[in-house]
């Protein structure tokens, strides 16, 4: 059963013309992470690699391709967590860096803190020698188009839902049975300046604990926070639920309690995994025992060998 990695490229409504790129993106991220795990790498290294790849892929709303805030600027959130020690690193509203998930890992490894925000996160990045990148390099035609459309007074809600698509994340279990999670996002299109969503909030955007499993979430951030979704799912697993049942219970609570839609990828320490969502789509991929599993639509589960 081990190792295993499961990634998502965001829950929401994936426009037809983007569906293929989105599926290809999650598949190649899962394969890259799987390669690390097969080589004896840790689940931490694997999830960071998977998320880094998706941050670098302009198809997704993270790193390059991030959606823009109300002022047309890029502010990104990311988190990662080590299920062995519960050590965690996060950054919120950080600007001008290519790979927020790698900065989150540095916060975890090099500071005594868990989360750094905004200008302080940038200062830390500079002190670590992380290259600053021009904002333009993170902005795509698509993200600018979404921003402009949402600025219009008659912006329609379906379009807005597309606008919150594309947070990326990964969970993994390595051959030693250690679990980890990572999540990264540009957040909500046309969000207020300084808005922090669920992603960098431990327990909401992700959680990992060797005693129960790991979860990375995506979807309607404000509602995910209100039910502390990742922690809630792991709580159900602590109570004996399977990764799949626990994910569905968490997502059902999200819907019934705060009318939120979203998606999750979940693993338990034995390698059982799930990719579940209540939105129209979620691009996801999982690699285990030489097989790549992937899908985009509800109930879709395709496989091919790696």
């Amino acid at each position: 059963m081990l190792p295993v990695v499961v990634v998502h490229g965001g829950a929401g409504l994936v426009p037809k013309e983007r569906s293929e790129k989105s599926t290809m993106g999650v598949c190649s991220a899962a394969q890259a992470a799987y390669l690390i795990l097969q080589g004896g790498g840790s689940s931490m290294d694997a999830v960071v690699e998977a998320v880094t790849q998706m941050e670098n892929n302009p198809t997704f709303n993270a790193g390059c391709g991030s959606l823009l805030n109300i002022k047309g600027e890029v502010e990104m959130d990311a988190i990662m967590m080590d299920g062995r020690t519960l050590a965690s690193g996060a950054v919120s509203a950080v600007r001008n860096i290519a790979n927020p998930v790698q900065l989150a890992r540095l916060v975890m490894d090099k500071t005594s803190h868990v989360c750094l925000t905004a200008e302080g996160a940038s200062q830390f990045a500079r002190s670590m020698g992380v290259a600053e990148v021009p904002q333009e390099s993170l902005i795509t035609e698509y993200s600018r188009m979404r921003w402009k459309k949402n600025l219009a007074p008659d912006a329609n809600p379906v379009e807005c839902q597309m606008g919150r698509m594309g947070t990326v994340g990964a969970v993994a279990v390595d051959v030693e049975g250690n679990v980890a999670c990572a999540t990264s996002t540009g957040g909500l299109s046309n969000k207020m300046e300084g808005r922090v969503g669920d992603t960098p909030c431990i327990g909401s955007g992700g959680y990992a604990d060797n005693l129960s499993g790991a979860v990375s979430t995506t979807g309607d951030g404000e509602t995910i926070m209100k039910v502390v979704l990742a922690r809630l799912i792991l709580f159900h697993m602590e109570q004996g639920q399977s990764a799949e049942a626990a994910s569905d219970l968490g997502l059902a609570c999200l819907k019934s309690r705060v009318e939120g839609l979203g998606g999750v990828v979940t693993v338990d320490p034995r390698g059982n995994w799930a990719a579940r969502f209540t939105t129209e789509n979620m691009s996801w991929a999982a690699a285990q025992r030489g097989t790549l599993h992937y899908g985009l639509y509800s109930g879709e589960h395709l496989t091919r060998s790696i």
Binding site: E119, G120, M192, E193, G194, V196, C201, G221, E222, K226
Partner: peptide
């Protein structure tokens, strides 16, 4: 007064 849950740094001050 907002549709968000959390604001940080300078953005919180602007709000």
């Amino acid at each position: 007064k907002t549709s968000h849950v959390m604001l940080t740094g300078e953005g919180a001050n602007l709000f």
